[in-house]
Design a protein around this nucleic acid. Structure first.
Lengths: 207, 207
DNA sequence: CTATGTGAATTTATTCACAGCA
DNA sequence: TGCTGTGAATAAATTCACATAG
């Protein structure tokens, strides 16, 4: 356990391990070996051990890992040990789906505000969140949130990002199909649904 | 131009280049340098040249690349030069959003059928597609499609995947937050929205 | 005897730097 | 001169294999 810098690819896998551990914990298990966890989350056992080795030794040789200890540690590393508030910008089809998306909760995420520029949507209440006018983006509402989710059309994405930066947001999950320019202290993770689908045919024999 | 095997990371970037090229083409440009394209899609210029070098020399030194030629070539490599039909399984919030998602079209994707097990949804028409009962998955409707999109809850994902495999699907874009087991000739790309959001706090200073 | 933790080997991807063509 | 194409250098990630602890 040498406190190396944790590789990016490991950071990408940690939330997957964390979910697996939480599920196993719900099933009443208290400890798990790298092999078992490997089966469960579909990663190799040595990959898991290597990943864990970057931040500590939690395992008991011959036994495995204590699930709760390990889960707590991963949460601490990922900075997920407190609730994170996020604002959503763009309440179209995708945005509405994200508002209702059940998967955020287990990691402690909460969408506390939603914004749109379409008057037909403003004022509507979706999943306990009332859609506000996008011009209110730098109002007190967002001050509680350090994260933002962008679900607006491509063309609006950059200006929304600019507004979010001005509003003091620290990290962005971007669903618009373009890379967004922000100061480099702000982290952007882009999920580009169509480009992911677009690589599928490459891997298919004839098709 | 050596016809190396194209690295996975390059394959991941090709759809991004392709979209950039198509946009530039729409703007009336006919050629572009690696530097210009680099600015446009936010990748480094040498990364672009290296990536292109895996499959041919298309550039004119001192000038740049012919946009249409290059776009056509990338489409051919990615197997995107024909229309691809996909079926959607799961027409909840996320599934509905995907049915309406405008970004698939530019790559030549078409969602031709949608399935759900919720009777309240079956029969509804969303974006010209009528939702069918999931039990009809191996009917003629899907025979035209080689791809599938899974947008069902986690628990149903594996059984849906099994059904899709039985129905002869070749590639799956999976939005359920779990890895799915399929024969290895079938390619699965998983988009796990929550785990992507979950890595964001790691990269944020205090938060 | 089982399962961890980790150096070392290997593979893969990024980055550089520049020769050479239009 | 401007920009491509690519070897060579670096860096990063994966994979192996095994000594070591419980």
């Amino acid at each position: 356990m040498r406190y190396h810098k944790i590789p990016n690819e490991t950071v990408r896998r940690l939330p997957i391990y964390l979910r697996g551990l939480m599920l196993l914990s719900q099933q009443g298990l208290t400890s798990v070996s790298s092999g078992k966890l490997a089966d469960f989350v579909n990663v190799n056992d040595w990959q898991i051990r290597k990943d864990f080795s970057y931040f500590g030794d939690f395992g008991k040789r011959g036994v495995g890992y204590n699930i709760d200890t390990l889960a707590r540690q991963i949460k601490k590393i990922l900075n997920l040990d407190a609730v994170h508030r996020a604002v959503l910008v763009g309440v179209g089809n995708l945005g509405s789906a994200l508002l209702a998306y059940p998967g955020f909760k287990i990691y402690g995420f909460e969408i506390t505000a939603a914004f749109d520029n379409d008057h037909a949507r403003i004022g509507k209440k979706i999943n306990d969140v009332t859609v506000e006018d996008i011009s209110k983006l730098n109002s007190p509402a967002k001050q509680q949130a350090s994260l933002a989710i962008i679900a607006v059309p491509e063309k609006a994405a950059q200006s929304v990002a600019d507004a979010l930066v001005k509003a003091g947001i620290k990290g962005i999950l971007n669903f618009a199909p373009r890379r967004i320019n922000v100061p480099k202290k702000i982290k952007v993770i882009t999920i580009d649904i169509a480009t992911d689908l677009a690589r599928l045919p490459y891997y298919i024999p004839s098709s």
